[in-house]
């Protein structure tokens, strides 16, 4: 066969493989939206879930997911910021730092179920915290730290070095320069990273089943005292999230309308993730423009 016909055949094969992938993607997203959107009423979003009857909503699960994302970010962001700064600006080039980087890579590739079990063992059992939002947030922090650290390190490194040089030459300390000069310039990249990781946290379930638990006690949204057991702000209560809810109604199957609930909840989950994605790209672009005014001509 001459090279030209081989070329033609290869192109056809590639195009059809891509066609299959595109068809799969379209099928995937449209299936979720088509089956899910009809169930996504305001009532569904705003009423509590039911264990043994049909007609339950996802109010508490949705709130738990959001609350967990916020708590996780509150815990993980400062640590990731410090660690990212260390790796970007302070880490010497030696084998110890190489080992540290490898450890962080290992952490990022650990199966989330292993991370969840670790948090279960240490927090839920050993420290007797029990199934609680805070245990879940710790598990998600472990899961989130390597990616966020990496993102912050990259964003800080992408700020041109001559900014640092200029500040050092004025007798400023490296730390002041990082916090007051470099960090503000790195914010667009960091925010994009935070939003994308929020999406990941929002959809994570395996690490949560044995940490934040699989039950959603009735919440009192009027009780703002975080120490009261039925307050929605209480971080010590067990909290089933949206993703865990989808898993649970499907694998235990005692809820009669499991299918309706999971398709509705999946649609909500996917919409939120899409939203996070668009928001991340949009805000990244917007902030980038704001911070580089006049620099690009």
């Amino acid at each position: 066969m001459n090279p030209k016909s081989v070329n033609r055949i290869a192109t056809t094969v590639i195009n059809s493989l891509v066609g299959v992938v595109v068809a799969l993607l379209v099928l995937l997203i449209s299936y979720i939206l088509v089956t899910g959107l009809p169930h996504m009423s305001l009532d569904f979003l705003l009423s509590p879930s039911q264990s043994y009857q049909a007609g339950g909503g996802i109010r508490d699960q949705l709130f738990n997911s959001i609350y967990l994302v916020i708590l996780t970010l509150i815990i993980s962001f400062p640590i990731a910021l410090g660690a990212g700064i260390y790796l970007a600006e302070y880490a010497p080039k030696n084998w110890i730092v190489d080992v540290i980087r490898t450890l962080i890579e290992v952490l990022s590739s650990l199966p989330s179920v292993v991370v969840g079990l670790f948090a279960y063992l240490v927090f839920v059992i050993k420290f007797q915290v029990g199934f609680s939002i805070i245990s879940g947030a710790v598990a998600l922090t472990i899961f989130n730290l390597p990616l966020l650290t990496r993102n912050i390190e990259d964003s800080i490194k992408s700020v041109p070095d001559f900014q640092m040089q200029g500040a050092l030459a004025l007798g400023l300390s490296k730390w002041t320069t990082i916090i007051k000069i470099i960090f503000p310039s790195a914010i667009p990249g960091i925010i994009t990273g935070i939003i994308l990781s929020s999406g990941r946290i929002f959809g994570e379930a395996a690490a949560l089943i044995y940490t934040s638990g699989q039950s959603a006690p009735v919440l009192n949204y009027a009780n703002w005292n975080p120490f009261s057991p039925d307050s929605f702000l209480n971080p010590m209560r067990p909290a089933e999230t949206l993703a865990v809810h989808i898993w649970k109604v499907n694998s235990e199957g005692i809820t009669p309308d499991a299918n309706a609930i999971s398709s509705g909840a999946s649609a909500v989950l996917i919409l939120v993730i899409i939203l996070f994605n668009f928001f991340a790209h949009w805000i990244g672009k917007k902030l980038y423009k704001k911070f580089t005014v006049g620099e690009v001509k």
Binding site: F162, Q165, G166, A169, L170, G171, K180, I181
Partner: peptide, 29 residues
């Protein structure tokens, strides 16, 4: 070293003002 750099200033090849106002560039340090 910070004291040294206060007495011996430096200007670089690439103009490198901070992403601040003109006033802020001068008053920051």
């Amino acid at each position: 070293v910070y004291e040294v750099r206060k007495h011996i200033g430096m200007v670089f090849q690439e103009p490198n003002p901070f992403a601040k106002s003109i006033r802020g560039n001068i008053t920051f340090a």
